[in-house]
């Protein structure tokens, strides 16, 4: 597996894996992660129940769950943007204190996460500048990564001059610019049209191969999750807990027509739908009492 062979600083993954190859060590590991806002106060609001799962190196994990289940909260805990109220989130064996250098994040709302006062090039250049990449190398890298997301000749434009799909491509390019180990995506394709969405889904599968990156992808679209994922973490309604983790038995490479026409796809779909529906029906019943 080529994506495992990337050189690792000694100690980081080696310690956790006890000498075995890095393939065995999870990139992310969540242990009873629970998050409450205004914790301890009278207005405490539990956003995320206790969630436990690991994400292995090179895996593509989707998280599905109804609106308000705590998907964004979960992703922010995995990124190191938010600290769990209890439990522990680890990245490559070390407890998360802040956002690790090797994590890229694509937020749902590209119009808010791309800086409108910077051109496309400067948006992508920003993480490279922070890491001290010199001017020439930066320019080369920007061009390379923009080409990877099938964007060329937009570097001098401002993000808001581009279509929604193109803007999200820029955000993906920026997240990949520094070769992250882990890419976290929060409903990245929720606000583009269906046609663009399919293109972006295929793009992200191709990029995952090209960059050998581990992906955690949040979505509320069950079809999208099945199409993309190796494993799907199904969250219950708010406060989210893990209902089930589904292994997706669909061969790769995947294809919008044949994969989605596969009978296994239909079976996964039915199964996950029933999980989500029965859970939300139960939640409604509980609320009525």
């Amino acid at each position: 597996m080529s994506r495992v062979s990337r050189s690792q600083p000694p100690g980081r993954s080696g310690a956790a894996a006890g000498g075995t190859p890095a393939a065995g060590a999870p990139v992310v590991s969540l242990h009873s992660v629970r998050k409450a806002y205004r914790a301890g106060g009278s207005a405490e609001r539990v956003a995320l129940g206790e969630v436990t799962f690991d994400v292995g190196r090179g895996e593509f994990v989707c998280v599905v769950g109804p609106s308000g289940a705590g998907k964004t909260t979960l992703l922010r805990c995995m990124a190191g943007l938010a600290a769990p109220t209890s439990g522990e989130a680890r990245f490559e064996g070390a407890p998360l204190r802040r956002v690790p250098d090797q994590v890229g994040v694509v937020f749902q709302d590209y119009s808010r996460s791309l800086y409108p006062w910077l051109t496309v090039s400067r948006n992508v250049a920003l993480p490279l500048k922070v890491r001290g990449v010199d001017r020439a190398a930066r320019a080369a890298r920007i061009e390379e990564v923009l080409r990877s997301v099938s964007l060329a000749d937009v570097g001098r434009q401002y993000p808001w001059q581009l279509s929604g799909g193109m803007q999200q491509r820029v955000a993906i390019a920026r997240a990949l610019a520094c070769h992250p180990e882990l890419l976290l995506m929060d409903e990245p394709f929720a606000s583009v049209d269906a046609q663009t969405r399919f293109e972006l889904e295929d793009l992200i599968l191709a990029l995952r191969e090209e960059f050998s990156v581990t992906v955690v992808f949040v979505t509320h679209d069950i079809d999208e999750a099945i199409y993309l994922a190796d494993r799907i973490v199904v969250l219950s309604a708010s406060p989210g807990t893990v209902t089930e983790i589904v292994d997706v038995a669909l061969p790769r490479p995947r294809d919008q027509i044949t994969s989605k026409g596969d009978e296994r796809f239909a079976r996964h779909r039915e199964h996950i739908m029933s999980l989500v529906m029965s859970r939300s029906a139960a939640a409604r019943a509980a609320r009525r009492d």
Binding site: F107, D109, P127, V130, R174, A175
Partner: peptide, 19 residues
């Protein structure tokens, strides 16, 4: 989201203030 983005891109200190 702007601040989260800055944190993710490791933009800190004076650069975060200016950019």
């Amino acid at each position: 989201v702007s601040l989260d983005t800055a944190a993710v891109l490791q933009v800190r200190g004076l650069r975060r203030f200016l950019v």
